[in-house]
Nucleic acid binder design. Sequence first.
DNA 1: CGCCGAGTTGATCAGGCTCAACAAATGTGG
DNA 2: CCACATTTGTTGAGCCTGATCAACTCGGCG
Lengths: 242, 242
Amino acid sequence: MSGETASIGLFKGLEPDVAAELLRQAQRRTVRADEVLFAAGQPARTVHVLAAGAAKLVQATPKGARVIVKYVRPGEVFGSPALLDRFYPVDAVAVTDSVELRWPSELVRTFIDRHPRVALNVIQDLEERLREMEGRLRDLSNEPVEQRLARAILKLVETFGQEAPEGIEIPFAVSRQDLADLIGSTLPTVSRTLRTWETQRQIRRLRLRLVIADVEAVARVLYEDGAPETKPRRSHRRTARR
Amino acid sequence: MSGETASIGLFKGLEPDVAAELLRQAQRRTVRADEVLFAAGQPARTVHVLAAGAAKLVQATPKGARVIVKYVRPGEVFGSPALLDRFYPVDAVAVTDSVELRWPSELVRTFIDRHPRVALNVIQDLEERLREMEGRLRDLSNEPVEQRLARAILKLVETFGQEAPEGIEIPFAVSRQDLADLIGSTLPTVSRTLRTWETQRQIRRLRLRLVIADVEAVARVLYEDGAPETKPRRSHRRTARR
DNA sequence: CGCCGAGTTGATCAGGCTCAACAAATGTGG
DNA sequence: CCACATTTGTTGAGCCTGATCAACTCGGCG
């Protein structure tokens, strides 16, 4: 259990006994893949930390499109809008069997009063997320699908990647649609791009469970770019009818 | 001066004398339009609050593209990475003559220890920004240029808009390029879109200083959309050589 | 008055979205 | 254990949005 707390950012810099107390007050909840941890629009009454497993934060637009805002890894805080008594802005869904810790928001606030370090830890997580979002915004504005896809996969690899016989494996289901929602593209385009990587480059293989054989080859996509001279790209759009 | 502090989120919920103390310890700095408040890559040693004026946070990509991450309005915290002794991830540039307050990061941290409410106020600002970024990510993934532009302008209007004889005015220079960098598009496309609005719709007029005659007409762009049936859009890209 | 930055406008064209039909893999019930 | 339904992924064809390139206009300004 202490091993578990070691990696939780929220506890960083706390006296061991203080961390233990905070942990004691947590509600522990075990969930299975695809279970919903909280839903967008609900009043946010608890602050969450993922103790084990993985989860995704998803925003569904009114018109049916989905955006995966983030994959949450163990140790990360999520649902922090609760601190301000807001509503959850996204759905949180477990992607593997997972364990989460929850604290009622008032409890966290009073805890912060006694141990402001906890607030700083929350700030750190938020800053990190903000940086990540800034990066994604930048990529979405300037990079073509192929590079965005490479980046997304590399990020998954370094966050969740596990050694496997055939390469690095992402230890939970990631569909083509998920990847598309992650990079602002579409399922067919993602499918085609992955197939290209499979055949042309010595990169490898796929099947609802992602396995990346040659991580460096994927990383190379970001630099090579096919052409000697590179330059920013911009987006196109189109309109459509249902 | 007390009037000035009233609108500063960082001071919210503090005893008046505590807020006064914090304010007293601030370094006050007056800058003129286009002056750089801090630059990306610099070690972040001070936390900033905009007291008056307006500023933009800009990220320049290695390849020359720019992204405007945010327009900062009076009362908002920026440069908060300083709390964690990081590097500023963006350039902060004044867009009008402005006044900023600065605190060395250690000072803020010790202040937080005594008055954790300050940390909560920072968290609130960060949460808000995160929500905003999530929204932009969603739009960039699913909406065509025209709607993104409408949204960006509406946001500017409600954040900075001032009554003017010919409509609502944005009280600082916003170039076509700025708008493009804000919505992930290009100068020519923004120019064309605005011209269309000027002629076809009864929306009005432009000139390095943005003046929106009919705000509601712009808002209508988000709904009408031209076609009766709507549906998510997706992006296109292209490659290019310098 | 010529230069310079900002904006306009036209022509071109391709990235990647949309539509759609099919294949593969998984699940379900009988 | 097989037939069918469902979910997920593949692949082809067409075509639209918006990026790119480029020439030109307009206001300021030194």
